[in-house]
């Protein structure tokens, strides 16, 4: 328990994100890049994009889950070492968005993996993405408090 607490605290200083596209239209993906660019500069907070889920602390999932990518989402989720967060970016991933009736869509992301923060929007602005990450940090703080009260 103590080990988990320390590690979650460390996530607040340095958060490495892996970007997982589960069938998005690329709008949310472009907004993630815009968050990292000079105007919003997410690297100030120690956030950086990494190329493999093994290095990641947080999965940034965009797009609702298609039938084809269902099992790959689970596989990528399991490749991320503990402790991990999942942030869903965009309306399609949070609900099914405009693909409600589609035969090709398996469902929103929280049907398959546990999600910590939803960031709605089509696409969400970079401010919203930074706000969502701040929410994730708040969640870390809360869980730390809860762990502290429990122990």
């Amino acid at each position: 328990m103590i080990r988990k607490k320390i590690s979650l605290k460390n996530l607040k200083r340095s958060l490495w994100a892996f970007h997982l596209n589960t069938g998005s239209c690329n709008a949310c993906d472009i907004e993630i890049l815009a968050t990292l660019m000079p105007r919003y500069d997410a690297e100030r907070f120690g956030i950086k994009l990494v190329g493999t889920p093994r290095h990641a602390d947080v999965l940034l999932v965009t797009g609702t889950v298609t039938e084809k990518i269902k099992d790959k989402v689970l596989r990528v989720y399991e490749q991320v070492p503990e402790p991990k967060l999942v942030i869903v970016i965009g309306g399609c991933g949070s609900t099914k968005g405009v693909f409600q009736e589609s035969y090709a869509m398996a469902g929103p992301i929280d049907n398959f993996i546990p999600v910590d923060v939803f960031i709605p929007g089509c696409p969400p602005r970079p401010e919203a993405i930074v706000y969502g990450i701040a929410k994730a940090w708040e969640k870390i703080e809360e869980s730390e408090k809860r762990n502290g009260a429990a122990s």
Binding site: R3, I6, S7, N10, L11, R13, S14, W16, D41, E43, R44, F45, G46, D57, P81, E82, P83
Partner: peptide
């Protein structure tokens, strides 16, 4: 840009993961 001590924070985090 990140703080100058950012690599130390990264190391601390990676050690705990």
């Amino acid at each position: 840009g990140p703080p100058v001590l950012q690599p130390f924070y990264d190391m601390g985090k990676l050690m705990m993961k």
